[in-house]
């Protein structure tokens, strides 16, 4: 079973974040440590679900925090802090996929993710079931943007309005992407019982 239910769909909001942003803008390094502690799991999880690779996800998450640290002065607080951080993360992850695909010229679905992961973590190979493998392949086969929208909606519990902010599209586009993602998964995994 996936064990990611700890803080799904409960992004911190409100005053707590406002105070954090104020301190970050003032250059308070302690505030940055708090931010990393509060968001590292979510940032890594979203990155992983978009790129579906441990190493790349870690790299994306690191890059996202570095950008947050460097550009927090530009954050205008028109959106909430967590949608801004998600936005940075998703952008980096999608760019990374595009870059890697261009470099390797192979579809993302064919990158050697399963073997590397199983090699690095033998317990994963033991836990991995045929079902998880099928789900993984099906999720990988979604177009990048659909996968990002699906991740944010289904796993992170964001509303379509928030997803639209994160991905930079309209609410309608987010709904359509999510609908098509689920339909495609249904087509690929329709025989699951």
């Amino acid at each position: 079973m996936s064990n990611d239910s700890t803080d799904r769909a409960t992004p911190p909001q409100g005053r707590e974040d406002e105070g954090l942003v104020r301190r970050l803008k003032a250059g308070d390094e302690r505030a940055f440590e708090e931010l990393v502690a509060a968001y590292r799991e979510r940032v890594y999880r979203v990155a992983w679900r978009v790129v579906r690779d441990d190493e790349i996800a870690e790299d994306v998450a690191q890059e996202a925090f570095i950008r947050v640290f460097r550009h927090v002065g530009r954050f205008q607080e028109r959106s909430s802090l967590y949608t801004w951080i998600y936005r940075i993360t998703v952008n980096i992850a999608l760019n990374r996929l595009r870059r890697d695909r261009f470099r390797h010229m192979v579809p993302m679905g064919e990158l050697q993710w399963e073997d590397r992961r199983a090699d690095a973590d033998p317990s994963y190979a033991a836990m991995s079931s045929e079902l998880a493998g099928r789900v993984d392949s099906a999720v990988r086969s979604l177009p990048d943007k659909q996968r990002a929208v699906f991740t944010l909606r289904f796993f992170e519990g964001l509303s379509h309005k928030e997803i639209a902010e994160v991905v930079g599209c309209s609410e309608g586009t987010s709904k359509a992407n999510y609908f098509h993602a689920v339909r495609k998964l249904r087509k690929l995994l329709g025989d699951l019982r």
């Binding site: 996936s2 990611d4 590292r40 998880a132 099906a138 689920v182």
Partner: peptide, 23 residues
């Protein structure tokens, strides 16, 4: 049923050691 199955998509929560290294 589909969405329940998809919930386990292979993601594993990293260990505390991972976060120490990460930070």
């Amino acid at each position: 049923r589909l969405l329940e199955a998809v919930r386990d998509d292979g993601y594993r929560q990293p260990s505390p050691f991972h976060w120490t290294r990460f930070e």
